[in-house]
Nucleic acid binder design. Structure first.
Lengths: 196, 196
DNA sequence: CCTATGTTTCTGTATGTACAGAACAAACGG
DNA sequence: CCGTTTGTTCTGTACATACAGAAACATAGG
């Protein structure tokens, strides 16, 4: 596998391409599933696939290789990488003797999901709470005609406030503590049923 | 406002329509925002809007009135209502002297979100975990070539297992306990740092 | 059994987004 | 500097899905 081949005109040949960027069946299965999963949670399929690929990779990968491996356009990869960098779960690294940007994913699952949750909170939950606050205020001013609306929106707002407050508690715990906590449900329940 | 008007040819007139199905500005704002929010989390806009509408409503609403109010096709409403019933967060009720099905939403926010989380877990997280389990097994069989892949997938699976186990603990708590818990983060942290 | 009323299913259209490919820009090496 | 490699932006197309409207279907009353 020589470098000259890699950039030769034969790169367009599928067989040649596969020689350079083949995924194992297991990795392929994960990449595809992760892509599907992404779409169901409002994340672009290619973005999720790239993330999966980098997560499984033993080494940083340059953009063109990602494009080859996943069989998508180079431009698509470029945009998706920017998106992932925006989320903060992948980053650029450089490899000696290679001008190209290489990309690697965070490897710590807990850290990764914490970042994702933080981001989604910031982008979606916080604005929702802001809207709810505003509407509750407006409903108060509007008086009796909006009394019921105010009550419903307050309930919703209260829910979000509790949930985000709670999430705030958890995300300040060290990662190990969360795991511990998950294993001692009964004692927690007891504490709560007696405590203030 | 007579019944004959409601089903008269004037129903097509926007002014007439509004007379029957007008939302307050506050309610409108919430319905629209909820619709946007839905799309970001992989839920159809109309579905989310209908849910918002029913959540704010003081009374059960028939499908055709929903269609009027939101300005969408009757068929669209029909499909969206089926979807929402599939989720289990709205139900059909009947009103005396009216043959039509009326729909009402769950009003308890906690119950509502618990149902939504349960459903999404069942539909998306559980299948993901099944896939991960299978792939981890396959990677074990595959031996050394897939050692790294196995390790990554195991980490991911472990994360999901902890999270779902944890969610299982929480969702068995009475609703009030969760709120309580959110307010006593420090004591919980202490417990965890000393406990088993 | 026919009609009025209501609901679901079917079919084509529209809309938004993802995506490929090309054009462009910048960085680098010779 | 000039050609080549690498990365980004732009433009049109394709695709998936949402949606409207119509037709078909169901049901209850008369």
């Amino acid at each position: 596998m020589t470098t000259c081949l890699k950039y030769s005109i034969f790169c367009n040949d599928r067989i040649m391409r596969n020689e350079h960027a083949q995924l194992s069946p297991i990795s392929t299965a994960f990449v595809l599933h992760w892509g599907e999963m992404g779409t169901r949670w409002g994340i672009n399929r290619t973005v999720a696939q790239i993330h999966a690929l980098l997560y499984l990779s033993t080494r940083p990968i340059p953009a063109d290789e990602i494009a080859e491996t996943l069989g998508v356009a180079r431009s698509n990869v470029s945009n998706s990488l920017r998106e992932l960098q925006g989320w903060g779960i992948i980053r650029i690294v450089h490899v000696l003797g290679d001008r190209r940007d290489h990309f690697e994913s965070l490897k710590d699952v807990w850290e990764m999901f914490q970042i994702i949750l933080d981001e989604r909170k910031k982008r979606e939950v916080d604005p929702t709470m802001a809207v709810l606050k505003r509407l509750v205020d407006e409903a108060k001013s509007a008086g009796k005609g909006e009394e019921h609306t105010r009550e419903r929106l307050s309930a919703m707002l209260g829910f979000f406030e509790t949930m985000t407050g709670w999430y705030g508690q958890i995300r300040r715990m060290p990662a190990g503590a969360v795991v511990k906590f998950a294993k001692m449900g009964d004692r927690i329940r007891k504490l709560i049923s007696t405590g203030t």
